[in-house]
Design a protein around this nucleic acid. Structure first.
Length: 101
DNA sequence: CCCCTGACTGTCG
DNA sequence: CCGACAGCCAGGG
């Protein structure tokens, strides 16, 4: 895509909105990843504020950079992720695309 | 325009 | 692995 009109960053919420909409089922991203995709690699916190104040977004697909689930909704998020087909263990993602070993 | 808060991140102990 | 501290950035009063 990028037909030439997708570079307009109206505001943070608009950019994040596009990224959240781009996430597929079973796709886990961290706040920093979403922020980077939105065009703000240093604004992970702003993503959290947006998700918390907004509803209708797959916030459960968003975790911290450590693969940790969102504080305050760990139990709920874990169940939702399991339903999405994501492996969650003890409140943390066990299926991150990373393979340190 | 200034100050504070926060669903973050990375480093240190 | 986990708790504490500092740095960075956007939003709201």
């Amino acid at each position: 895509m990028q037909t030439g009109s997708s570079c307009d960053q109206a505001s943070f919420g608009t950019a994040v909105h596009q990224v959240l909409e781009s996430i597929g089922v079973g796709e886990i991203l961290s706040y920093g990843e979403v922020a980077a995709e939105a065009g703000f690699p240093r604004s992970a916190r702003a993503v959290g504020q947006f998700l918390r104040h907004s509803e209708g977004y797959p916030w459960w697909r968003i975790v911290t950079a450590s693969g940790r689930l969102v504080p305050g909704r760990e139990a709920l998020q874990t169940e939702l992720l399991l339903l999405e087909g994501v492996t969650v263990v003890d409140g943390h993602i066990a299926d991150m695309t990373r393979k340190p070993e």
